[in-house]
């Protein structure tokens, strides 16, 4: 580190110590000017500003190079991330979020201006502040995007759960009416909830009704097969109902063997078959027929 940079860093540190309140207020002011102020609470902004500035001061007192300070200094880093996540959740735009962090530059530089009029020194300070806070802007943007992604993921998970209800139709008979396009993820969620429900209700038959499913591809048909096999491994039976002509065609064309699976045209037929199955002694066989069972 050059002596000049050292001196500039020291200056910035001192300015932050001396004018902490002033810088914080100015920064909050700038943010409120830039953004739709009604989305953000001014007192929240003040708390954030105070935290970030004290973290910044502490960071500058150390010897981490400025351009790495924001990423490697724990407290500073988490301040920037908290601030960005908070905005992501509050619905602020990514631009506003980054600009909020970057506007601290202006507040800092103005504070430095009070301590020196020397252009060379001011220039050095500006360069230092830029290097310091550009990293913060980048981190803020990244955090914002990840925060949003997480929200989206959580929502799509919730949607998945809502769209796959498992209902108890009769004693020991469960039904899963599937509506809409089935993709691999959804079919997997269905499989898991069916199996869990079988265990919870001690169900002997699970009916998967696909009347509301417009089409299936190989992967989905494969997952349905998996579901049926897993249900059997657990000791229950599975009936698939409501296979519509186009789906029957697909299944035939794909050469998927559904011959070992009990299929029925309608949910009503499936229920009748299921009730019949539950009248017989509980039994399921994985795959091949069992001679011992037949002879009994």
């Amino acid at each position: 580190m050059s002596p000049r940079e050292d001196a500039t860093r020291q200056r910035l540190h001192d300015v932050l110590c001396e004018r902490e309140k002033e810088i914080a207020d100015r920064w909050v002011g700038l943010q409120l000017e830039q953004t739709d102020a009604n989305e953000l609470d001014a007192s929240d902004l003040h708390t954030e500003a105070a935290q970030l500035i004290s973290a910044l001061t502490a960071g500058l007192a150390g010897d981490t190079p400025v351009h790495r300070l924001v990423v490697s200094q724990g407290e500073l880093r988490s301040c920037v991330m908290e601030l960005s996540l908070h905005r992501a959740r509050a619905g602020a735009s990514p631009t506003d979020t980054s600009l909020a962090v970057l506007s601290l530059k202006q507040a800092l530089l103005e504070a430095v201006q009070h301590t020196t009029r020397d252009t060379a020194e001011l220039f050095a300070a500006a360069v230092l502040i830029n290097r310091l806070l550009d990293a913060a802007g980048a981190l803020s943007f990244e955090t914002y995007v990840e925060g949003r992604e997480e929200i989206i993921q959580r929502q799509s998970r919730q949607l998945l759960e809502v769209s796959t209800p498992v209902v108890r139709l009769w004693r020991h008979v469960l039904a899963v009416p599937l509506i809409g396009t089935l993709d691999t993820t959804r079919t997997q969620v269905v499989m898991e909830s069916v199996l869990q429900a079988i265990q919870d209700h001690e169900a002997q038959v699970a009916i998967i009704d696909i009347t509301g499913v417009p089409a299936v591809d190989t992967a989905v048909a494969q997952h349905l097969m998996h579901t049926v096999n897993a249900v059997r491994l657990m000791g229950a039976d599975c009936v698939i109902s409501g296979i519509r002509p186009p789906i029957a065609q697909t299944i035939a064309q794909l050469g998927i063997d559904l011959s070992t699976i009990l299929t029925k045209a309608t949910l009503a037929d499936a229920l009748a078959a299921a009730i019949q199955l539950t009248d017989e002694p509980t039994l399921a066989t994985g795959g091949a027929t069992d001679p011992a069972a037949a002879s009994r």
Binding site: D44, T47, S78, L85, H86, E150
Partner: peptide, 11 residues
């Protein structure tokens, strides 16, 4: 700032 539980876990 308010620190919600989920916010905290995300952080």
């Amino acid at each position: 700032m308010t620190l919600y539980d989920e916010e905290f876990s995300a952080r």
